[in-house]
Design a protein around this nucleic acid. Structure first.
Length: 140
DNA sequence: GCCAACGTTGGC
DNA sequence: GCCAACGTTGGC
């Protein structure tokens, strides 16, 4: 079981958009590192959902409901997409600032490679973030 | 709005 | 194959 972190600017597609839609195709990734991560995503694996630029915080967790397939928005079939659905929201979003202030999280892709749109998350990191944020029971 | 980090492109 | 120029992303 792997854990991931997927980034989106709320102005283009926010967590609440995902909740409203029930699921979405995670497309538009045009970076080799991120693409490799998408390729390793397995059905049922969980992704921290991070809002970049506005908010700069992890707001919820999404689940992979379809494994990698050619990105329908790309003309080149090498680019891949997955499909994700909302799993649960966080009671208290965990901000980038908080993560940066705790040395434990210093190894995260999110911190080290700030431009990577799909990053890997260690199980311990995932657990701690959920602990800190708290599962929201009424969502989605 | 600025700038650092990083990826991509193109000239040589 | 190197490297400068340029574009994009994302934090601040």
């Amino acid at each position: 079981m792997n854990y991931w972190l997927i980034k989106s600017e709320p102005s283009s597609y926010s967590w609440s958009d995902l909740v409203r839609d029930g699921k979405t195709v995670w497309d538009g990734v045009r970076n080799y590192g991120a693409r490799n991560h998408i390729r390793s995503m397995k059905l049922g694996e969980l992704c921290l959902y991070y809002h970049s630029n506005e908010g700069r915080e992890i707001v919820g967790v999404a689940k992979v409901i379809r494994e990698a397939f050619p990105d329908p928005t790309a003309s080149d079939p090498q680019w891949l997409a997955v499909e994700v659905a909302p799993e649960f929201a966080l009671e208290n979003p965990v901000t980038l600032k908080t993560l940066k202030s705790i040395p434990f999280f210093g190894q995260m892709d999110l911190i080290r490679l700030s431009r990577l749109s799909v990053g890997k998350v260690r199980a311990e990191e995932y657990k701690k973030i959920i602990q800190m944020g708290g599962k929201k029971k009424t969502q989605p």
